[in-house]
Nucleic acid binder design. Structure first.
Lengths: 196, 196, 196, 196
DNA sequence: TATGAATGAGCGTTCATTCAT
DNA sequence: GATGAATGAACGCTCATTCAT
């Protein structure tokens, strides 16, 4: 008989995996893929360097896994959006508020930083290319069109408006450090860009 | 006796230096500090790998020199700004237009990417921290205050308004690639954030 | 009070030890010392990785123990040989037949592979050097001399004849895999090398 | 203008490549693929560890290149064989003598050791599987059949005879170290195996 | 001055070994 | 006694930097 039963071991494994992913998220978000040494992740997680490789085959796989899961989460959040109550303006404002929220800070930073660099694993680049632009934006575009039809949003190509608006949100999240002094603009301020 | 006189040699040196800096600018802007290998810079400049180190003591120094000079240029441009004719709104609009211009693309990309990563030489980080926020922003802040006094800009802490506004511009420049489809919003669009 | 008495525990220990040695024998024989990971031995034995080290201080010691014991067995077998009935030719033929037998395959493979590599523990190398040539060969040499005196074996330095003959046997055992198609030559065939 | 012309540089590169290959050949032959550390090859060649990788992308590629070239050479030698004058017996004796020769010792050791281990790069394994058995042996088999028809070689399946004979040669080369005392049997001795 | 071969410190990764359970 | 998660030394490999030419 085992000294620890199967359930307990699985729990330990799951906890460690999560712990490593959390540490990696913070480091990758702050220093990028190349700038993050596995020793930094180990230090952040408070474990030995070698242990990382029992849970993730390589730094590459660890990064790609994170990207994969973060994209998945983002997709779900956007999916829910269109079934939310309220006008298009209120829906986008809710999303904007969520994106600027402290709790999802590192997730966005990692994804956004990753998308601006060629220096990430090929597979991660593929995932980013595929999902982000195509799937999520398609969902939002219909909300934007409704917003324009309702006269809430400024006129013109809705895809263009959407692209610009989210570029700004994205970038602001990335600026986080520089912004420390004044914090992030609130959603109301940013909605100016959309209003007619 | 030397086949080239001192003046000619100096000219060659200066040209080589410039050539290396130009190559480095493009590469650092595109791939970041860590992502840019010295071999890439040599290839971009069409010289041998070793030669870089006769003109710059190290990759570190080359990068820091670039940052230094780009900051310097930006400072000059901002300095000139306040002596320009036109209302505060028109002055900021001119600056905005200049920043979004193609010709200064790589310069801004390098600086902005650098500011988002800890993974740059310490000295470069120090330069960015010191100048960018303190000196340049100080110059702009007075224009913003004038703008608010003239009722052209929205009210509130002018530093906050300034920080937010330029964060957005900066981010949009960085998005350059993702934006290919729609290009950058023109200055008029962006001025919305400032208007009351 | 212990649920198992001392005798039972010793029996478990002995069985485990044997089980590990058997698994290690197969793996070391097939993949050599460096090519065999302790995890492979554990898997082959159906036990956990850590348990190996309660029975053998190290991979090094496990390997050396195996070599030691296999050499010991070989020595005993050779010892018995000279008291066997029959002519020198028949005695050597019996030994040859035994070496080519399926049941001792892995034992010979391990020993032979070990002797061809420096990459084994120092102590194991020492054992191989000492015993193999000195003790076993001494026993066989007298049989060879008798064989030559009886005109059964070809003339010349008997040590040379012996060394060559067994080298050939050894090699054939190692070839096992490549030989699958045709099997091993039988003892009669090999005795040609000895006959006048 | 270059300080060294293109021809000189190519010569340096070719010499280094050959030097590394020679060092690697000796080490791989003696200690096998896993047992040979890149540091050992560098030490044997009298160069730094890193330099190996300017000439060969990886230890894997270096090994595979060696296997490739050695197989190629062996193929050529065997090809020439059948156009040589003399009886089948004399032809095989010439080949045997060549294989036992000091100068090609390491080449055979490397190949033979490689063929006995799974622990080599996949590509190298593929090359060995393809060429050795199929191409070379086919050439020799016809000489063996002629030898049997001429009554020079012992009867029976010629492929079996060939396989056994060359297994013995191969193994003897591998035994090199153990054999130091008596040297290798000469070709005459080994031809006994083939004679009727 | 210019070259590119050569170096070596440091990274990502493996695996024998330890140890809490 | 048995487990397998955890460690760390050592490996293969990269790349900024040096140096003979």
């Amino acid at each position: 008989m085992s000294p620890l039963n199967k359930h307990q071991l699985n729990q330990i494994r799951d906890e460690r995996r999560e712990q490593i992913k959390q540490a990696a998220l913070i480091r990758f978000a702050r220093h990028g893929y190349l700038g993050t040494k596995t020793s930094m992740i180990a230090a952040e997680a408070g474990i030995s360097e070698g242990l990382i490789f029992r849970y993730f085959k390589s730094k590459d796989v660890l990064f790609t896994t994170l990207v994969q899961e973060l994209i998945e989460e983002a997709k779900l959040e956007t999916e829910n959006l269109q079934y939310l109550p309220g006008s298009p303006f209120e829906q986008i404002k809710a999303l904007t508020t969520g994106m600027l929220d402290e709790s999802s800070k590192y997730a966005f930073m990692l994804i956004l930083r990753a998308r601006k660099t060629d220096e990430i694993p090929e597979e991660a680049a593929r995932i980013l290319e595929q999902h982000s632009e195509d799937v999520i934006l398609e969902r939002l575009i219909s909300i934007f069109i409704q917003g324009q039809e309702a006269g809430e949003f400024s006129p013109g190509d809705p895809r263009k408006l959407l692209a610009w608006y989210f570029s700004i949100i994205n970038c602001l999240i990335m600026e986080e450090v520089a912004m420390e002094e004044y914090g992030l603009p609130n959603a109301d301020y940013l909605m100016r860009f959309l209003k007619t």
